[in-house]
């Protein structure tokens, strides 16, 4: 495992903990897209089914379980415990616009036409677009709380670090996973606009608000 991979995983973990901590401390999930969080829970559920079929390492197993737990607890906080604070009027992205093409593509373009492999492929494609309901919500309301922007920054940074990981793996192991790389590039591109706003506004102490 190279340094980009471990930093990527830690960035991913930090993003999820930041979001959970923010909701827990403020007892409020306004500004968070429940739809994006449902999609992430679905991503982890369909990707980590191999927890039941093969063991890779302790690290791998522990991280998968932690990611799954974080995703489900977040969804529970939004739709259960703190649902009264959930801003559902602004979380209006139509999920079928993402799910239908992603399901179709995962049947068409995969490594192996087996249920587990198709679900893994589905999870990779879905992850690349799962943040869109959240970004749509921010563009609709025109603003985001600072901790929400930190969450988005680390979530985007994780995928950008994975790109560096894949370049390193290609150089050192001659390994590449075409589905993950192409989806990862797409996913990272969705964050570029946000990265720009984060650096020019949030890091200078201003709240992220769109004109």
């Amino acid at each position: 495992m190279n340094v980009f991979r471990i930093l990527g995983d830690l960035s991913h973990l930090l993003a999820m903990i930041l979001l959970l901590g923010k909701i827990w401390r403020s007892k409020c999930c306004a500004g968070i897209s429940g739809k994006s969080q449902i999609l992430f829970a679905l991503v982890f559920t369909t990707r980590y089914l191999d927890l039941f079929t093969n063991f890779i390492s302790i690290y791998n197993t522990v991280m998968k379980v932690v990611f799954l737990l974080c995703a489900y607890v977040t969804v529970y906080m939004i739709y259960g415990k703190f649902r009264k604070t959930f801003d559902s009027e602004n979380d209006t992205f139509r999920l079928e616009f993402l799910l239908v093409p992603v399901i179709g593509l995962s049947f068409l373009e995969n490594y192996n036409f087996t249920p587990l492999e198709i679900l893994w492929t589905f999870s990779i494609y879905l992850e690349s677009v799962a943040i869109l309901p959240q970004l749509f919500m921010i563009s609709k309301t025109g603003e985001a709380e600072t901790i929400t922007t930190h969450y988005l920054f680390f979530l985007g940074l994780y995928r950008a670090l994975y790109l560096a990981n894949w370049i390193r793996r290609y150089q050192t192991e001659n390994f590449y996973d075409q589905i993950a790389v192409v989806s990862g590039v797409v996913q990272t591109i969705f964050y570029c606009d946000f990265f720009y706003l984060y650096v020019t506004k949030v890091l200078k102490g201003k709240k992220l608000s769109l004109p």
Binding site: R5, N60, M63, K64, E117, N165, D177
Partner: peptide, 10 residues
Amino acid sequence: ELDDLEKDEL
């Protein structure tokens, strides 16, 4: 490319 389809990445 992927011999055994074992995925160690998260």
